[in-house]
Deep mutational scan, measured.
Amino acid sequence: MALNTPQITPTKKITVRAIGEELPRGDYQRCPQCDMLFSLPEINSHQSAYCPRCQAKIRDGRDWSLTRLAAMAFTMLLLMPFAWGEPLLHIWLLGIRIDANVMQGIWQMTKQGDAITGSMVFFCVIGAPLILVTSIAYLWFGNRLGMNLRPVLLMLERLKEWVMLDIYLVGIGVASIKVQDYAHIQAGVGLFSFVALVILTTVTLSHLNVEELWERFYPQRPATRRDEKLRVCLGCHFTGYPDQRGRCPRCHIPLRLRRRHSLQKCWAALLASIVLLLPANLLPISIIYLNGGRQEDTILSGIMSLASSNIAVAGIVFIASILVPFTKVIVMFTLLLSIHFKCQQGLRTRILLLRMVTWIGRWSMLDLFVISLTMSLINRDQILAFTMGPAAFYFGAAVILTILAVEWLDSRLLWDAHESGNARFDD
């Protein structure tokens, strides 16, 4: 018995066209964080690309023209004298008006014999932002004059995390709450300039795509075929072959399989920071003279006294001054041990922890910024005066060393310790 099946006739004509040209192939790229070699397709503007294995951002879609970056830099340069030299806060102490600005706080630190601690604050609040705007201006002028731009481009990517104007702005709020127990506070004209400078700096850093600047100024022929001998440069993120001198053909720094002496430098910085954190938390970090009496505060006791007036601000200072430094030390110690013992479990967790400490590390400088600003506000000789204690130097040095330890660690070593050939990683 035959089955009668109805015929289905399409209502619209289906047209099949042959592909007349070869589909576009992607360029081969190595991930600078996990060293995976993959094919990167062509990316349009405002599109980002991520590593298929570790999800690290390979290409950032946010990109401004150099002219727009230069305009932002010149605007920031105009704001800087007002943000640093004009009063941020006014207080009335014992019937006398006192003005506080950024430069005055750094000068008070240096004047009291601790120039190293003052230079830490100076670099993060004044030096690094000033280098940022002058570097962008150098790129703008240098591109037109045919100057060598490689050193500036190499420095810009590392400079971003040292620009800490946003953290200093939080420190202004913390210092205001600490001082309000002794005097009446009012915002100064410099505060508005400083807030504007923070906003412009944040926007500029978020749109400063150094890798795209490398592509514009020093374009290189990408690798179009897969080759395990391809290496990625950690300076400019170019994937290719080393030249005859073993250097990256684009930025001219040595092109090595792994960062040289990464573990040794990381261990040295980490152990030194552990040693410095002990006096930083045991010795007094601030000293207040009130009517001839002397009151010393460690980091913890200062947080407890701050909690009596504002528990939320005390929580912020606790996280930045105690929780973050010790968390960074514990995480980095764990990561280094996992590399030495070739741990194969929990790779995803370790990668996330490394990215976390990379982002939060700079916030530990908050305590030094609060001390710097408070020193310029309260300084009335023996009637009422505020000065920093010996722990300030140890704390600042420990924070900087932990930042350097994270920067010096080559994250690809975590993958080397893991089993080879993993296309995915999980716990």
Rank of each mutant, 00 (worst) to 15 (best):
M1Q: 00
A2L: 09
A2K: 09
P10E: 11
P10W: 10
K13R: 11
T15P: 12
I19V: 12
G20Y: 07
E21D: 10
R25T: 12
G26E: 14
G26P: 11
Q29K: 13
L37D: 10
F38I: 08
F38L: 07
E42D: 09
A49N: 06
A49R: 06
Y50L: 07
C51S: 01
C54Q: 00
K57L: 14
D60G: 13
D63N: 15
W64P: 14
L69R: 06
A83L: 05
P87N: 12
W92I: 05
L94N: 01
A100H: 04
A100W: 01
N101C: 04
V102R: 01
Q108M: 15
M109W: 04
Q112R: 05
Q112T: 09
A115G: 03
G118I: 01
S119E: 04
F123K: 01
L130V: 11
S135E: 01
A137K: 09
N143W: 13
L149N: 05
V152C: 13
V152Q: 02
E157F: 15
R158G: 14
Y168Q: 09
V174N: 06
V179G: 13
Y182S: 12
G188I: 11
V195F: 10
A196N: 14
S206E: 05
H207N: 13
L208Y: 08
V210K: 13
E212P: 14
E212T: 14
E215W: 04
E215S: 07
A223S: 08
R231G: 04
R231P: 03
V232R: 08
D243S: 05
R247N: 07
R250L: 04
A268R: 00
I274G: 11
L278V: 11
P279S: 11
L282I: 05
I288A: 03
G292N: 06
G292L: 14
R294G: 03
R294W: 03
E296P: 09
D297H: 04
I299F: 08
I299C: 12
I303K: 00
M304T: 09
S308I: 09
G315W: 13
G315H: 10
V317L: 03
M332C: 08
T334A: 11
T334K: 14
S338T: 13
F341K: 09
K342W: 12
C343Q: 12
G346M: 13
R348S: 11
R350S: 10
I351Y: 06
V357S: 04
R362A: 07
R362V: 14
S372M: 15
M375E: 13
L377R: 00
I378C: 01
G389I: 00
A397K: 03
A398I: 04
V399F: 02
E407D: 13
W408V: 06
S411I: 10
L414W: 06
W415F: 11
D416P: 06
D416V: 10
E419A: 11
G421R: 11
N422R: 13
R424L: 09
D426S: 14
D427W: 11
